[in-house]
Design a protein around this nucleic acid. Structure first.
Lengths: 123, 123
DNA sequence: TCCATTAGTATCCTTTTTGATACTACCATA
DNA sequence: TATGGTAGTATCAAAAAGGATACTAATGGA
């Protein structure tokens, strides 16, 4: 006799919503502060405009982020976490810590920071 | 003036290792007990043999799971978490809880369980 | 002798994801 | 008048991921 699953695992519910290559990183950046589209794009250095737009739309649809459009020219759009989005932050914090520990354990721990080590630049 | 990142975010280190469609779910199943290949495959109902093999190889390479081959016929291979793999479990537990809360908050909470609700079958 | 079993490989093909590029509107400034 | 800046869309092409199928070894049992 053996046990078998005929249930919907809630880990995979979470993966459906914050999984993928970009969503966690977007939420993680927004957990520090509200950001504009272009600021997010600079922080996620490898993301293309198309991907960022797509992922933001999905996060908005799923109720994790809020999109605020200012009626200005040039356009300004600010993204921030909703309460639902805030509730993901503890998971991200654990992931951040685990990643650090992993790098240390595997001796790759050179020059890594969890929160931005920042260089100031002109905007 | 604005802050910009020139660092390697450790959230993305974690994503590189346990991200993707299957790895978290594999680790989650193995957190309950050591499982054979075919047992894992049955628990991850949608995974193909190819995908499961591939993901297990990567998890083994990254030091999260242990692969024990028994010299028997037909072959028997058992997968279990290493200490490094165990250290991921708290993240998975949070994800499990978050998924549950999300379903409740969005009123989709019918018939969902985090740990297997089990039906016994012949093996 | 033939079949079932397990844990895979190998191959080919399809689907999905991702990337690159060009284009838009609107206003301010040089 | 031309240029720059923001936050996008639209389109096509390339790359990656995933799926289907066939195949393997070695043994026990019908």
């Amino acid at each position: 006799m053996e046990e078998i699953t005929n249930y919907r695992c809630t880990v995979s519910v979470t993966l459906d919503i914050i999984g993928g290559k970009w969503k966690s990183l977007i939420l993680w950046q927004l957990s520090f502060k509200t950001l504009r589209f272009s600021q997010l794009q600079r922080r996620l250095s490898k993301v293309t405009q198309k991907m960022l737009t797509q992922q933001l739309r999905e996060l908005e649809r799923d109720g994790l982020i809020h999109r605020k459009v200012y009626a200005e020219v040039p356009p300004r759009v600010e993204y921030s976490l909703t309460p639902m989005g805030q509730s993901v932050v503890p998971i991200l914090q654990l992931m951040c810590q685990w990643g650090k520990d992993y790098l240390i354990a595997t001796e790759q721990s050179a020059a890594v920071e969890c929160a931005p080590t920042l260089k100031r630049i002109e905007v």
